[in-house]
């Protein structure tokens, strides 16, 4: 492992997941060591504001990792587009980093899409129920044929999934903070094949 490793993520949910996944792959000691250097950036457009964080790592002969969302064409992103934009940013700011884009570093999508794919399959029925709810909402149109109700965003889907279980007050507080109890295999499958690309990426640098 490099002397200094910084992992730049988008928000607190991503931070929590990456910490849990590193812990799962490499153990608690390593995860705790890296945790202070998992940096919430607020998204790819904010890199300019924290460029000194990248430079500091480079000066220390360390490594910067960026783990952001690919997003999709409908929200002005997509894997190829976002990758190009970040490569341009790298050149413009004269910084260096290794890049991984959620969900799997090849498809469009995001952190929530990745989570949808790593739930404990024993509870996949929750998503079926949620999809029925979405279908039901979609059926309600105005005179012009537009949806009357806001369709749930994928963030709601993930929270609906985790919210379907009974938790202690302490667990509920953790969930509110963005920690969706990733290290509990009752809800998430961190060994699933869908994470293989992320696993390979992290193994290369940690």
């Amino acid at each position: 492992m490099s002397s200094m490793l910084k992992i730049f993520v988008e928000g607190k949910g991503d931070e929590s997941f990456i910490y849990a996944y590193i812990k799962h792959l490499f153990g608690k000691d390593k995860a705790d060591f890296i945790k202070p250097n998992i940096i919430k950036t607020g998204g790819w457009t904010k890199i300019d504001l924290i460029v000194q964080q990248f430079i500091e790592t480079i000066d220390s002969n360390g490594k910067n990792l960026i783990i952001f969302d690919s997003d999709s064409v409908s929200n002005n992103g997509g894997f190829t587009k976002r990758k190009n934009e970040l490569e341009q940013k790298k050149e413009f700011l004269s910084i260096d980093f290794e890049l991984f884009l959620f969900p799997n570093n090849k498809d469009d999508g995001d952190y929530e899409f990745l989570l949808e794919n790593i739930i404990n399959q024993n509870h996949s029925v929750i998503f079926q129920c949620f999809n029925n709810y979405e279908t039901c909402l979609k059926a309600h149109k105005d005179d012009e044929g537009k949806n009357i109700y806001n369709l749930p965003i994928r963030k709601s889907k993930i929270f609906a999934y985790i919210d379907a279980f009974n938790f202690s007050r302490k667990q509920k507080e953790e969930i509110k903070k963005g920690n969706l109890l990733f290290d509990d295999s009752a809800y998430w499958d961190l060994n699933c094949q869908y994470l293989i690309d992320l696993k390979k990426f992290l193994e290369k640098y940690i």
Binding site: K40, G42, Q52
Partner: peptide, 21 residues
């Protein structure tokens, strides 16, 4: 000794994001 420079905008943003400066 290496200095890492923050103007107000980047200083403000880093503090908001909880980034250790």
């Amino acid at each position: 000794i290496k200095p890492y420079k923050y103007n107000f905008e980047s200083f403000e943003y880093s503090l908001e994001q909880g980034i250790e400066i």
